[in-house]
Design a protein around this nucleic acid. Sequence first.
DNA 1: CCCTCTCCTGAATCTAGCA
DNA 2: ATGCTAGATTCAGGAGAGG
Lengths: 364, 364
Amino acid sequence: MTKPNSADALPINTILEGDCIDVMNGLPAASVDLIFADPPYNLQLKGDLHRPDNSRVDAVDDDWDQFSSFSAYDQFTRDWLKAARRLLKPDGAIWVIGSYHNIFRVGAALQDAGYWILNDVVWRKSNPMPNFRGKRFTNAHETMIWASKSEGAKYTFNYEALKALNEGIQMRSDWVLPICNGGERLKDEDGEKAHPTQKPQALLHRVLVGSTKPGNIVLDPFFGTGTTGAVAKMLGRDWIGIEREDKYRTVAEKRIAAVRRLDKSSLEVTASKRAEPRVPFGQLVERGMLRPGEELHSMNGRHKAKVRADGTLIGNDIKGSIHQVGAHLEGAPSCNGWTYWCFKRDGKTVPIDVLRQQIRSELD
Amino acid sequence: MTKPNSADALPINTILEGDCIDVMNGLPAASVDLIFADPPYNLQLKGDLHRPDNSRVDAVDDDWDQFSSFSAYDQFTRDWLKAARRLLKPDGAIWVIGSYHNIFRVGAALQDAGYWILNDVVWRKSNPMPNFRGKRFTNAHETMIWASKSEGAKYTFNYEALKALNEGIQMRSDWVLPICNGGERLKDEDGEKAHPTQKPQALLHRVLVGSTKPGNIVLDPFFGTGTTGAVAKMLGRDWIGIEREDKYRTVAEKRIAAVRRLDKSSLEVTASKRAEPRVPFGQLVERGMLRPGEELHSMNGRHKAKVRADGTLIGNDIKGSIHQVGAHLEGAPSCNGWTYWCFKRDGKTVPIDVLRQQIRSELD
DNA sequence: CCCTCTCCTGAATCTAGCA
DNA sequence: ATGCTAGATTCAGGAGAGG
């Protein structure tokens, strides 16, 4: 028999019909890498909400008060977050977007469910709807919460790629992006907007470039018109959508069919140094790039040490790795020996990292 | 008889010593116009953190920020929010500031306690501390929640004053302000920062100008070094502070004593200098103005390169930013990629700088 | 006087891999 | 699981020294 929880069983790159909690509970556990969720925040839920066991949440009716409505919304939130968490791989992560009407309840529920918040990210709208009555601030942003499945999980974060997207400065928690309108805004056959809260593709682009790898599986339980699927497909990620309403699914199918998947070289993003193969310092000695007995000098010129045949260094009163000796001499908690030590060739001072690069380039 | 709840009974313009919940419960109900609260954030820090230069980050590890669990923090939050709500006049309002560690719990508790959220306001820090390990986004903002005592309350909002503060444009829900440092940052006798989380006066200035009237009473239950009191006094509002720690009260007393109450005409407006916003090339890609995989051509027609999903280019033998690749191909020490690269649309060659101008025009 | 350069610091839930 | 070690990682701005 095939494994019942295998990712092979997943309905990849399709839109599933139905209530997201029911549908999620029918999918194999620990099978998706990322969840992006744009849940409803309408508190007048009119009995739409169902628990995982299909019992109806006793939600707001005509004379609802704020407490019963909040508690119904909380129940709904707990239920879908629980179902979503089951689907995530151990190192998976989730993004949830919302406004002040619901995001505080969602955030608290995320924490209570065992997710570990990594950042809250503010989408700062460059062209928000103004406040017409002059009674409040222009509601010019929405909030996204990025969380791993649990504390200590090895979530994906493409730091260098995001830094590249931001012209060499590390990406901040506030993102300035326009709202979705113009040609990107999907219209129905009447020329009306097809969905009231269509998210801009640029938002999903940043989310997916930053927190997934090509080939990852991205689930969106409130798929709407499929922005998540469209961007995922373009970026070479697999996707699964869940959507209750026929009309949204129809629009989304058509939209995603028209998207072209990017070729591999365009998908490659700036890699992190951490991903590069590890080179032991001893290899430089074994290969004769450095001689045992040769002297190394610290980058700041204040210290020196001698190379030993086993790839350790010996300083005045300390023996150990290039890192340990560097840290000791500087009185620092740690030290990257590769960038700390230099050697001399033909009167010139050369960082030893140059030799590591040389070895790495031979590995390609 | 005098009214027992009269504001006359209030210890105006003083700092009260003690636990804020006890002290608030001893004050007359329905007596203050505004509450500004900067409660402990419940940061959950594990080990030390060092900068890349090996210096240690001076973290917020004070006892007052330690809670045993989320539920202990929730209980504390519910208690102080309840005591605070009793003190508010029916048309009073509250501001609470926090970070992703606590703000979701605070926001949910506010709603549960019957407050009515009016806006969430994002303080975007112009000079936040970076993320040193490259594992998350720069935590570049904090969130404030502005709420009235209850739904339908006639809260104060000085729309025109805020619009004036913002150069004639309606004030938005995101405020760009620097963190508190330099001369404004209070030091103790050892020259160390007097309080680890002193808030900038500009933040309180905007809060108080926007949501109080001169002569109003402003309460701060987590007074710290008294930024709320100092700005309130300057702006001609009355204030009450509550602070547990002797050392903070001492600093705050001295600070506020040195503040001069402004005469009515001199409510100075700190005009923000507006530099041309930097637009990362990656935004053109995220926003679909250029497609990953698309070819760019050099202005002189001699070179070409392909756009990648993270906003870098790939040429024959070189990957990097638009500037780096341009410089490399020209054999030049530097290159302005914005004026060097062009793309093709409808058979015409267009400089990419046109797209940057387009984005900038949206930001005005 | 100005300019340059160095040093310091800010509410932080901040590593990965192998033995 | 725990422990150890390699080695990757920062932006804006103010203060102060030196030229």
